[in-house]
């Protein structure tokens, strides 16, 4: 069974006070997430990530399209008991303690009183807030709040967890902790759908990612699949300090001691080797550089911008 199935969800807002113009926050989106997957939803700020998550949570209503979560219609109230959600940069109720907040969310999730007590304590321990469980949230740091947010999202043992930018605004330690938590969730067999604009997080965590830009899906697949699909680069090293003229334009060349190192596009490989041979320079190594998700990302976005440039 698919955990999440997005069937052409689309959202158009009308903006402007006097003359209403349509603004496409999300073009019709089709996406499927397997059960047990960690799925990354990538895109720059304003790409439509949050809109997608709000649509799935029933916070905004789609212009058209629908979705299924755990095989049920996404508006079905029964679905809500099996999902958890962490919004972007949550603040929560200032005057509640972490323990009271989790209690409250437990109540709203329909957990019984017996079940709630131990669950709340366990959850506080799991996110490392056991010692400050009785402190009001207004005294919490951003990182602590984020941990409370994750705790509330997984408190009721949901099957699918939606996290909107769970790592944003956290220090490296905090990001590490959140990563570990997400990996734990996967080990527990939960499906995690999270949005981010930090690519290294996605690269480290995700089974699969989808890339969205300007409200439109640009690519979807496993990280390795995506990165191998783009033209990579090669690192070429030779002996000496001389750089042939024809190589200077192909990429930046660094002279270190008595070797020169240059990173050039894969398709220029032949030209470079030929130039070295002509100048009788000794080739030391020629290795492909693995493309990162960032390369893929930049390339995809450039394509779009170029296309738009042509249209404009």
């Amino acid at each position: 069974m698919l955990a999440i199935e997005i069937l052409g969800l689309e959202k158009t807002y009308s903006v402007g006070f006097w003359r209403k113009r349509p603004k496409h926050a999300l073009r019709p989106l089709r996406l499927a997430v397997e059960e047990g997957e960690i799925f990354g939803f990538l895109g720059p700020n304003g790409a439509g990530k949050t809109t997608t998550l709000k649509l799935l949570m029933g916070l905004v209503f789609p212009t058209s399209g629908s979705a299924r979560i755990l095989g049920k219609e996404w508006t079905d109230p029964a679905v809500k008991a099996q999902i958890g959600f962490l919004p972007e940069q949550p603040y929560f109720y200032d005057y509640l303690t972490a323990r009271e907040l989790l209690e409250y969310y437990g109540q709203l999730s329909g957990m019984s009183e017996k079940e709630r007590g131990p669950k709340v304590e366990a959850m506080l321990g799991r996110v490392g807030l056991h010692d400050v469980g009785g402190v009001q949230l207004r005294k919490f740091s951003k990182g602590m709040l984020q941990r409370v947010g994750i705790a509330q999202a997984i408190l009721h043992d949901p099957k699918v967890v939606f996290l909107d930018e769970p790592m944003s605004g956290l220090d490296p330690m905090g990001r590490r902790e959140v990563r570990d938590l997400i990996e734990q969730l996967k080990r527990e067999g939960k499906t995690v759908f999270f949005s981010t604009h930090i690519l290294s997080d996605a690269e480290a965590l995700c089974d699969r990612v989808a890339i969205i830009h300007l409200g439109e899906l640009r690519g979807v697949g496993a990280v390795a699949e995506l990165t191998s699909s783009i033209h990579g680069k090669v690192e070429i090293v030779w002996q000496g300090t001389h750089v042939p003229e024809s190589l200077k334009n192909l990429g930046e060349c660094h002279v270190t001691g008595d070797t020169v190192r240059a990173v050039i596009a894969e398709e220029n490989q032949e030209v470079a080797v030929e130039a070295l041979r002509r100048e009788k320079l000794r080739l030391v190594s020629l290795v492909p550089v693995r493309a990162s998700l960032e390369d893929y990302f930049v390339q995809k976005l450039k394509q779009v911008d170029k296309m738009q440039g042509v249209i404009a």
């Binding site: 029933g58 949550p90 999202a153």
Partner: peptide, 14 residues
């Protein structure tokens, strides 16, 4: 504003 409503409404709360 504090997005607490989002977490409330993502639960079985109408």
């Amino acid at each position: 504003e504090r997005r607490t409503l989002y977490t409330v409404l993502s639960r079985p709360v109408r």
